[in-house]
Each structure stands twice: as C-alpha cells, then as structure tokens.
C-alpha cells in the first residue's frame, strides 16, 4: 500500500472524536480500579472497628487529608505521561508537597515526643503488615491504571509504568487507611510511603513491557 493510499484510507470515514475522550477513559478505568480495591478491603480486612469514633479525631483527618491529596497528586504525572510530548514541569512539586507536609509533621511529632515514645510512634503495631497490605490493595488499581494508559499513548514507558504504579499505590493507601488504626504521623510518613513505593517499583519494572503500543 502506498503512503498516499494509506492517508486516504485513514481519513475516509474518520468521523469526529468524541469530546473529552481522555477524561472519560480515566473516570471509567480508575473508578473500576478504586471500586475493586474497596471491595477487596471490605471483604478481606474490613473497616476499622472504631471508625465512628475515629472520625471525631483531628489526626484521622490529617491522615485522610494526606492519602487523598497524595492520590490526587499522583494522577497528575499519569495524566501527563499518557500524552505524547506533554511537559513534565511541576510534576515533582505537585508530588512533593503532600510528602513534605507529612514528613515535617512527623519530624515535629518525633522531636516533641518523649524518647521512650518514639519507637511506638514510628513502628506502631502494624508496621510489618502495612506496606504489604497497601501493595495488595493497589493491585486492582494497577491493572486499571495500565489499561487506562495503554489506551492513550505513553511514550516514556518506564516512567509511565512507575507513575501508574505510584497512582495505584496511593489509591491503595487511601482505601487501606479506612481499615488501618494507626494514627501517628511518623508511621504514616514512613510505612505508607513504603507501601506505595512497592507498586511504583513494579510499574517501573514492567512498564516497557505492559504499556507498549
């Protein structure tokens, strides 16, 4: 087939592209992924038993604010990396802001607390399960994020895979925070981050293979 014939073939009957095709795919993909994570959490872990009382505590909202804002922030690089040639300016600031906020809070909490208390603030009672449960809950979101991106056009596959992993980790952490009873900033600043970085690493590793188009 000559190139001119290909051009004619592609143009014939091409029709209009529906409005907001990218946003639509995101809503479908990430909606399904988040729902999957929520169902997994509800079935296998369940919400924390003291949820009704916990929502009266300010620290509950600090924790929720961190996981929600970080999940929202991690949409940004995914959004950018799924379009060819889109600029990555501001990505590190957007991602960095919530992380720096929780780290600062963790540092203040550790500095102002008693030396004997610090170990409890950092390790809590679930440090050895938390990162793995976050990574586990991120799995359905990861599948959805890869599906979403693959239908667009990522051109930097390793970065794009890492971004998809980070987003799924952040949504996994958001869902996990409904189950988790830990409330200390140092715990969240370290073990939640560790949990989110597991799918990030997996995404960066598999990105070139999974996202090729």
């Amino acid at each position: 087939m000559r190139t001119d014939d290909l051009v004619t073939m592609l143009a014939t009957g091409a029709g209009a592209v529906p409005p907001h095709p990218v946003a639509r795919r995101y809503v479908i993909g990430l909606g399904a992924g988040t729902l999957g994570a929520a169902v997994l959490m509800a079935m296998l872990l369940g919400p924390r038993p003291d949820l009704a009382a916990a929502i009266a505590l300010p620290m509950f909202w600090v924790k929720t604010g961190f996981v929600v804002s970080f999940a929202a922030a991690s949409l940004f690089p995914v959004w950018r990396l799924s379009r060819p040639g889109a600029s990555l300016a501001w990505v590190s600031s957007v991602l960095g802001a919530p992380v720096i906020a929780i780290w600062l809070l963790a540092a203040v909490v550790l500095i102002r607390s008693d030396a004997t208390q610090r170990e409890v603030l950092f390790f809590g009672s679930s440090w050895n399960a938390c990162p793995f449960l976050i990574a586990f809950l991120s799995a359905p979101v990861f599948v959805a994020a890869v599906w979403t991106m693959k239908g667009l056009a990522p051109t930097r596959l390793r970065l794009a895979g890492g971004a998809a992993g980070l987003l799924s980790g952040a949504v996994g952490a958001m869902v996990y925070s409904v189950h988790c009873t830990e409330m200390a900033a140092p715990f969240i600043a370290f073990w939640y981050m560790a949990g989110m970085l597991i799918p990030t690493a997996v995404g960066a590793l598999l990105g070139p293979r999974l996202l090729r188009w």
């Binding site: 592209v17 095709p21 667009l152």
Partner: peptide, 8 residues
C-alpha cells in the same frame, strides 16, 4: 491516527 484522541 489511532492515538489522535490524545492530542490536547
């Protein structure tokens, strides 16, 4: 052509 919906 296949990815034209990703142009912003």
């Amino acid at each position: 052509h296949n990815q034209r919906h990703t142009y912003d």
